[in-house]
Write a protein that binds this DNA or RNA. Structure first.
Lengths: 143, 143
DNA sequence: ATTTGTGCAAATCATTTGCAGCAGA
DNA sequence: TCTGCTGCAAATGATTTGCACAAAT
């Protein structure tokens, strides 16, 4: 799994004459390890304990590369920081976001996925990926 | 339609002792007129030709009021600017976003809406609103 | 040897806030 | 009049960029 992504990234770099650096590897590893909804800043903080010399900008630049390599993609929750998640997760789950405590649950209903395909077909639209977010109050907060 | 929202906003203001000012009215009007996916900055630029004295912060502050009054809500497309759309549009349609030409179609499938309710019930989650975006290639661009 | 990458600090972009004067209620 | 509102400018927060040095090919 992980090694798939690492290999893909290395190939991506090689293909365009970019360089394979420790920072990029470290950032990719951490990004995959944290799986989902990560902001650049969180990634940076998580890494800087271990690698105090790592620069913020390197994290931002690496995320951009990961997006370009289709390994990461932006998820759009509300707020002012941008968040990212591994591409391979995307399209495979939907989100229940609690507007009270902010927690997110990841869910999947194959019947919904199926109906989306139908919907899209009716519009002669070729789907690549999708995002479903349902905002509300989670069980805990409701009680 | 529009007057509904205007009345609601005025009531909202009155109810909490906030003031009904020309700026707030102008901003609400323009916001409704532009319907959907508007950023604070776009709203500001659209208005400043006609009202050169309007301040950016007033636009930001008014949008916040509109959100609070449940007239506007943040939509989460990708990018660094936050975007908003009228609340009455929300929850009533889903988006097909063409990644080639950038055009968005608004669609609705009641069966999907229905299944979402089921899904959510299984998680004892109380839904307030949701957003479904399907990214892909539209018919025009595909041909 | 050549070119790209990195860290730092400064720059920029979006958004927020403090404040002095202005305007609804 | 009283309190909230506005515009401005300055502050903050997130992200980007310029540059000199370091590292990968």
């Amino acid at each position: 799994m992980k090694s798939d992504e690492k290999a893909a990234f290395i190939k991506y770099l090689k293909d365009r004459g970019f360089k394979k650096t420790p920072q990029r590897q470290i950032i990719l590893d951490k990004f995959l390890e944290m799986k989902g909804h990560v902001s650049a800043d969180e990634l940076f903080r998580a890494l800087r304990r271990k690698y105090p010399h790592l620069g913020q900008s390197t994290v931002f630049r690496s995320i951009k590369l990961l997006q370009d390599a289709k390994i990461a993609s932006e998820v759009n929750f509300t707020g002012k920081r941008r968040r990212f998640e591994p591409e391979h997760i995307k399209g495979h789950h939907d989100h229940l976001v609690c507007v009270n405590c902010g927690k997110t649950a990841e869910v999947l209903d194959q019947r919904i996925e199926k109906l989306q395909d139908d919907l899209v077909r009716r519009y002669r639209f070729t789907p690549l990926r999708h995002r479903l977010e349902i905002f509300g109050i989670c069980r805990k907060c409701a009680s």
